[in-house]
Design a protein around this nucleic acid. Structure first.
Lengths: 212, 212
DNA sequence: CCAAAAGTGTTACTCGTACACCCATGT
DNA sequence: ACATGGGTGTACGAGTAACACTTTTGG
């Protein structure tokens, strides 16, 4: 038993883990085992341990619950309404993570299991205030798209410019002009050419990789 | 005594309250009364109460410790290193606030007292990790300058474009071109003309006010 | 030879930036 | 009259957005 002269809230991190599935942005949800919200879908998350800081807690949740380490793991907000958890007071420190589609286990127990990817266009009702958390995660994710290299975290180490553009469009929700997109990416210096090509029933596509 | 089966950290908000003094950006610091860091300068802050959320806690700290209500009060980060407070584990949720220079009590007990404004160019050593918190507050504040109306919170309800430009330069640390600055502000629609003028030993300056 | 995606330039427009002089008041 | 800050326009360059056809492979 831990005792304090004043009330202390519990502190947890919740992580919205995004990836691309079939060209659409998807988020990982787990099915809750216990009360409250038993059986409901929720974001993976867990309580802060004594010897770790919040970033480490989020990273641990990511690897424990999803078996992944992310290219991007970023704090975007706190959720602290007094009654958001009916058991006791819980402060939720929210992160979003982006993981490469080639590290995602294809159907990771998707049939009747505990963890599943959901396209963001068709989310179920979520436990607690997690629906709001996901919405806020999307806003934070989109707001930093243009000026950053976070998109690369959604792709394998080598990727075509077309797949990068697909990733951009899946996240931003808007179509982009092919020539302008390529100009911007090449000009920004965040990627460099490799010598390899991806083959298919069409002209081979040059593979690029993260610069530096 | 409050008891929990697992360890719970204390949760507090710390608020970097900025204003303009003599044309320079200044932050409010209080002198600590008790251990640890007794007598050292620190950001105002306090523990989260049971019935308030984090935003309300920060707003309460702002009004309790500074006697002010701010035009802007914005979360910008969490500080959670396990040993950042030697007494017990404390998670600090950090906010910055901007208050109008005309609401600032001119020398608010500044002589030998507990609270004082410090120009950000000459901060003393601070308690805990508060030096880092102030630095991060400045980065967050500056990053949102151009596309927002937060600067208006530093000024009285009516202000001249020159004083707005001074505020911009004090926060950003860089000089701006007068004509371009005015074009941008007028074009953005965040201010509108009033019919009044400020008089001095020069041509009268039109007063503006927040639009909408 | 047909389908499918890759790759490639130019033009128009918008936006940001650099820059200097006259104006209205107080003293 | 002079000192002080207020107020104004233009020209150039950079960056962004619109736009369509040829190339290379697999089937």
């Amino acid at each position: 038993m831990y005792r304090y002269p004043y009330p202390h809230p519990a502190v947890a991190t919740d992580v919205a883990i995004f990836t691309l599935r079939d060209g659409a942005l998807a988020v990982l949800l787990i099915r809750r085992k216990g009360e409250p919200f038993e059986g409901a879908w929720a974001l993976p998350g867990g309580f802060l341990k004594e010897d770790e800081d919040l970033d480490a807690c989020a990273a641990r949740e990511l690897s424990e619950e999803a078996g992944l380490s992310a290219g991007v793991l970023q704090h975007f907000g706190n959720f602290s309404a007094p009654e958001r958890d009916p058991r006791e007071r819980v402060i939720s420190v929210a992160y979003f993570a982006l993981v490469s589609s080639d590290r995602v286990t294809p159907e990771a127990g998707s049939d009747a299991a505990e963890a599943r990817w959901f396209a963001i266009s068709s989310l179920p009702a979520l436990a607690f205030d997690h629906t709001e958390i996901v919405q806020r995660a999307l806003v934070a994710l989109r707001s930093g798209l243009l000026t950053s290299d976070i998109l690369l975290a959604l792709l394998p180490a080598r990727f075509t410019l077309s797949s990068l553009q697909e990733a951009f469009e899946a996240v931003s929700g808007e179509a982009a002009d092919k020539r302008n997109f390529r100009k911007r990416i090449i000009g920004s210096g965040i990627v460099r050419e490799s010598d390899e090509f991806e083959r298919g029933s069409h002209r081979p596509a040059r593979l690029y990789e993260r610069a530096v």
